[in-house]
Design a protein around this nucleic acid. Structure first.
Lengths: 337, 337
DNA sequence: TTCGGCAATCGTAACGTTACGATTATAAAA
DNA sequence: TTTTATAATCGTAACGTTACGATTGCCGAA
């Protein structure tokens, strides 16, 4: 934005016959400057509509007051991952409250994740980074740790290094979901996962495996589906399972879209959730409760995840060498009515 | 990001015994500098990993290469407006391609819209602004025009000034939807709108009114519902209509959430879309096509809206005094199968 | 009176970049 | 040989801010 008539320190200083230094200090209530002077400076600053120039300050101090979140975007499907919306809203709001701006860097499936992060590092345009969608052995963690850039990840990974993250306890949620399905009498329980290397899916698989092992039920690999975040793939996958000779009686869904897909597949066959197949899903958006279907729901507060991410990142920026903060959030279960 | 060992022009200049000026020019292929020098400079720049300092450049040139989108966020409901997700993705991607970063400024219902814009103006941290959710007589337009800040609006308003916008032709879509419902034999057609002063809703109401007038059907105000973007309100509203003595036989939904709510209300009464009530909805996310229900759909490509917004804003920044560009996008109709 | 100590303010330099006029070297024209 | 044009490069200033050491004026202690 240009409109060159922007007030600056020099103008205020000239008007009051003070030095730029004194004005600068007065505006941040520096103890070196006389209270009466502070008052005069602030009065003029307000009158001329002074707002500190972000770039002058950033250049001098090295801080940008900007955070960048790297978010993957699915170009195949406009619906993308619904959880991203409350996540973005939570992050932007928390960032704003903490005095930061949040910029979103969307990556397409064509983008190399490491390269994207590298580019952001090079640009040095943010004080900190938020990375999401962690994969097994995620190389971005090492890159960011090496460069000593404050960052926080949404999700853990299987690396043997400590780094700041916020995560949902996917293992526990999947364990719990599987158990609840078994409580309904299900023994053939289908599990919906995302792409294979997705770390959240790995955790979910672990929780599912633990529950099955405890119940002494052998795992049937054909019941475990890997897909993308879209509804299409969910419909096709679950439809195939339903068509098999020994169809599942229980289903643990990955998210809203997976759930909608599965319901679609059920509906086409005249089957009913809660009667023919028991369903438990993870819900990031409170969408599931509005569906006319009996399903158990693990709700996850993604806006809270966003808040926590910013909080952790902020503490990291304030104290880059401090202890590594990690947060693990639980889901909240609402049974099928 | 600190890691103070950041390469700058001075270092490159020193290494090559050149002046900072020449290096700066060489890196942007200035015609004043010898091709062989350009090559040498670029080689060193690449080796030391030089990346231009954003703030130094912004301070000097007055350009920030940053755009800010002001997006309202519904705190009542995590689902918020689903259309925002593809919109954000479209904008961030287009911005990136145009060499800009996009920052998101989420406003809560508590925030005063004008004040939010004013704050962003004061901060001077962006080269341009994107405003959304236009209301009748939107005061932000005058504010932004007065301050000569490049901006683009998602949506028109009823002001008598020219300003750059991208909009969906809501009037035409509502007109079309109403006609299609009448083609199915509906005469009592319910219309789902958002809050009263929302400008998009006003356009939709106009289109509905035009279609009804052409068909000679008087408008029954009780069939026109004003609500929020949530599903709850949609369920309650449509349920009340269905319970009335003369229930509607057609329904034009505002968006996905409104549709899901209406379907919920129908399902509870054992009614079926396409048989008992004909439904046409606007769909911003391609969600509707996955629902096991016969509904007509006007699909709107929100990612494209995002692209267009950035495009218009970019041209505005490049030429602030040029002609005011406006874009009006049509929906694409997919009939109930 | 002279000095130390303190409060209040000032001046300069620096962050990294770009704009612009000045300077040098080179080659062609007189 | 001197002039003139041109190509290549340089130096300085500026954008708005903050850090830091220097300076001023004043009061009380010696």
């Amino acid at each position: 934005m240009k409109s060159g008539d922007m007030a600056n320190l020099k103008q205020i200083a000239a008007e009051l016959s003070l030095s730029v230094t004194t004005v600068s200090r007065a505006l941040k209530d520096g103890p070196e400057v006389q209270p009466s002077t502070i008052a005069r400076v602030k009065e003029v600053a307000k009158r001329v509509g002074y707002v500190p120039n972000h770039h002058g300050r950033a250049l001098k101090t090295g801080r940008t007051l900007m955070l960048t979140a790297v978010l993957p975007m699915e170009t195949r499907d406009y619906l993308s991952d619904l959880a991203k919306l409350p996540l973005i809203e939570g992050m932007t709001l928390a960032a704003r409250q903490a005095g930061y701006s949040l910029s979103i860097y969307s990556t397409t499936p064509d983008d190399d994740p490491v390269e994207s992060v590298q580019r952001l590092l090079d640009a040095r345009s943010a004080d900190g980074l938020i990375i999401t969608r962690m994969v097994s052995g995620d190389p971005r963690v090492k890159l960011l740790l090496d460069q000593r850039i404050p960052f926080v990840a949404f999700g853990r990974t299987d690396l043997d290094v400590a780094y700041p993250y916020v995560d949902i306890d996917n293992e526990q949620i999947a364990y719990d979901a599987t158990q609840r399905l078994m409580d309904k009498g299900c023994r053939r329980i289908a599990l919906q996962l995302l792409v294979a290397k997705d770390q959240a899916s790995a955790m979910r698989l672990a929780g599912y495996g633990r529950a099955m092992a405890e119940a002494g039920i052998p795992i049937d690999q054909s019941l475990i589906g890997h897909g993308t975040f879209t509804m299409e793939s969910s419909v096709a996958w679950f439809d195939r399972l339903l068509a098999s000779s020994d169809p599942p009686t229980g289903l643990a869904c990955a998210n809203e879209l997976g759930l909608l897909g599965a319901l679609h597949a059920l509906g086409r066959r005249g089957l009913e959730p809660g009667r023919d197949v028991h369903i438990v899903t993870r819900d990031n958006t409170r969408l599931a409760r509005f569906l006319p279907a009996k399903i158990g729901v693990h709700s996850v507060d993604m806006a809270d995840v966003g808040h926590k991410l910013i909080e952790v990142l902020e503490s990291r920026i304030a104290n880059p060498l401090g202890p590594v903060v990690t947060v693990l959030l639980q889901g909240k279960f609402d049974p099928a009515e």
